[in-house]
């Protein structure tokens, strides 16, 4: 297989895995938790490198996964016990962990096969050459296997927990009343976000994971009114961004990960302008009434 195709496959898998869990982050208004987790997994990854001495995926997943959960717990604890407002709890926690990670990378530069640039924007262009070998048999790029597995896991998580995720996102009060453990599902979701972040980290880096986690879901959010369709559409936009990004990067001879983020942003802007239901232009042109949610207004209210 041509290495361009492999890169597109890796990008598409990362985008698909991110988009699936990203939808729930967006709907829970926790988009910035994605940002936080994608930064704070760094010390976990470095630790895993130091301890296992290799890039084997399992220690990395464990290291980063635990750091991701630590971030979720720490922000929660700062809010509850430190009485800090939620946005500041997130800001304090992830910048600290990320700084620690950067220091570790520079301190152990000799032992850790990671440099700070790669942390930020990944090495997706190198992924086709990082082949998984069993004996002498080549099984194709390692990233494809890792991201493929994570995509399947995410799919299973959302498939099995669909109704709990949906209800805890929409109406936590009712969820608690019918006996769903809201906290548990919050941390489960955070766990899967961490897992996904780690998987995508090597390919696209910390910050562009955020783009994959929240830009395609928000694009889809402007185009559909069904949760299931929103998830499907966001996967589609993620994959299209990956392919378009590869193309754009080839034109400019620049970073593929950066280009993927730019293309996904372009899709969002297009949806924002041209969405037939929630677009700016549609809202401007059409005089059709939609309704706001103000409790005092029982009658039709045009949306701004």
């Amino acid at each position: 297989m041509n290495h361009g195709l492999w890169i597109m496959l890796v990008g598409s898998l990362a985008a698909a895995a991110c988009a699936m869990v990203g939808c729930f982050l967006v709907l829970r208004k926790q988009a910035m938790m994605g940002d936080a987790i994608s930064h704070s997994v760094l010390p976990g990854i470095v630790l895993a490198f130091l301890i296992s001495g290799s890039r084997s995926p399992l220690p990395m997943l464990i290291g980063a996964g635990s750091l991701g959960l630590l971030t979720a717990f720490l922000t929660g604890a700062l809010e509850r016990h430190g009485r800090l407002q939620p946005d500041a709890s997130i800001g304090v926690t992830f910048t600290w962990l990320f700084a620690v990670g950067v220091i570790m990378v520079s301190a152990f530069a000799g032992q850790v096969d990671l440099d700070t640039d790669c942390v930020l924007y990944g090495e997706i262009a190198a992924s086709p050459w990082d082949i998984w070998l069993i004996g002498d048999t080549s099984l194709g790029p390692r990233a494809v296997w890792i991201l493929g597995a994570i995509t399947v896991l995410n799919l299973a998580f959302i498939g099995l927990g669909y109704k709990q995720l949906k209800l805890t996102s929409f109406d936590p009060g009712l969820a608690a009343a019918v006996g769903i453990n809201v906290q548990l599902w919050h941390y489960l979701l955070m766990g899967f976000v961490s897992l996904t972040t780690v998987g995508a980290f090597e390919s696209v880096g910390a910050i562009l994971v955020v783009a994959m986690l929240i830009v395609p879901p928000n694009t889809a959010y402007l185009l559909t009114d069904r949760l299931s369709r929103m998830i499907m559409l966001s996967v589609v936009f993620g994959v299209l961004s990956a392919i378009g990004g590869y193309w754009l990067a080839a034109q400019l001879d620049g970073s593929i990960a950066g280009a993927i983020a730019v293309v996904s942003g372009a899709f969002f802007v297009a949806a924002m302008l041209f969405s037939p239901t929630h677009g700016v232009i549609a809202g401007y042109i059409s005089s059709r009434n939609t309704y706001t949610t103000f409790p005092e207004e029982p009658e039709a209210q045009p949306r701004a």
Binding site: L120, L208, V215, N218, G258, A261, V262, G265
Partner: peptide, 19 residues
């Protein structure tokens, strides 16, 4: 979401320009 999108997309554009 708007914060996160601006953050990551602008940063992506920056990385693209940088490279």
């Amino acid at each position: 979401s708007a914060l996160g999108m601006v953050l990551s997309v602008f940063f992506g554009a920056g990385i693209l320009l940088l490279t």
